[in-house]
Amino acid sequence: MSDFRKAVISAPGRERLARAPHGAKVVIHATAAETNGAFGMWETFTLPGKGPAPHTHTRETEVFRVVQGTYRFQCGDEEFDAPPGTVVVLPPHVRHSWRNISSELGQMFAIVTPGGFEQLFLEIEATAGAPDKIASIEARLGIINDETTALDP
């Protein structure tokens, strides 16, 4: 792990491309390994009607900024829409989900603290998104996912 004494640079054309469990393209900008565990950072590009299954993070707080499209978030018992420019902070240990409710490709910038969750996207890309692999990756990263939990052996 680095000691985070050097700049982390994600330049156009040199980003790390990955996938989310729901198939969205993810561009990784910084990882926990590069920030000494402080945070992870990425952008997600979500097709209309798509988003992750309801899930709970047991380790990290997530911060999203909607860049394009409108997303519908659920956090616990609360549901709200987030148009471009909206910043949403989701606490750990609270079941949540979101989906792109617009008719265009959605884009969100995201940060997790502490870092580490961004590794999910890189590992999904490496395993070609096999559902049985996703469940074990999520479990190892402390994610409780309503859809993949049933797939765990």
Rank of each mutant, 00 (worst) to 15 (best):
E118Y: 04
S103T: 02
A33Q: 12
A53Q: 00
F80D: 05
E104Q: 08
R59A: 15
A7H: 10
L141Y: 07
V63S: 13
A126Y: 01
P91K: 00
P52L: 01
V26Q: 03
T44C: 09
G51Y: 02
D3Q: 14
A82V: 08
Q74R: 03
H57C: 09
E15R: 14
A33E: 15
R72D: 00
F117L: 11
E43N: 13
V89E: 14
R72C: 08
P54E: 01
V88N: 06
H96V: 04
A53R: 00
T148N: 10
F117T: 09
K133H: 13
G69L: 02
F4P: 02
R14W: 10
E118H: 00
I137F: 08
G142E: 06
Q119G: 15
A24M: 06
E43A: 11
Q74M: 08
F64S: 00
G116H: 10
A30D: 03
P12E: 13
V8K: 02
I28A: 08
E43Y: 00
F121E: 03
A135R: 07
G142L: 03
V26G: 14
N36W: 10
V66M: 09
G49L: 01
E147T: 12
H96G: 02
I144H: 08
S103L: 11
V63W: 11
G51T: 01
E147V: 08
P12R: 09
I101M: 00
F80W: 09
R14H: 14
D3M: 10
E125Q: 13
A33K: 13
G115H: 04
G23A: 08
G106M: 04
A82G: 08
Q107S: 12
V94Y: 04
R14K: 12
A126S: 09
A7P: 02
E123I: 10
E79I: 12
T46D: 14
E34F: 13
L17G: 13
E118R: 10
V63N: 02
K50P: 02
R19C: 08
F109V: 02
T127C: 11
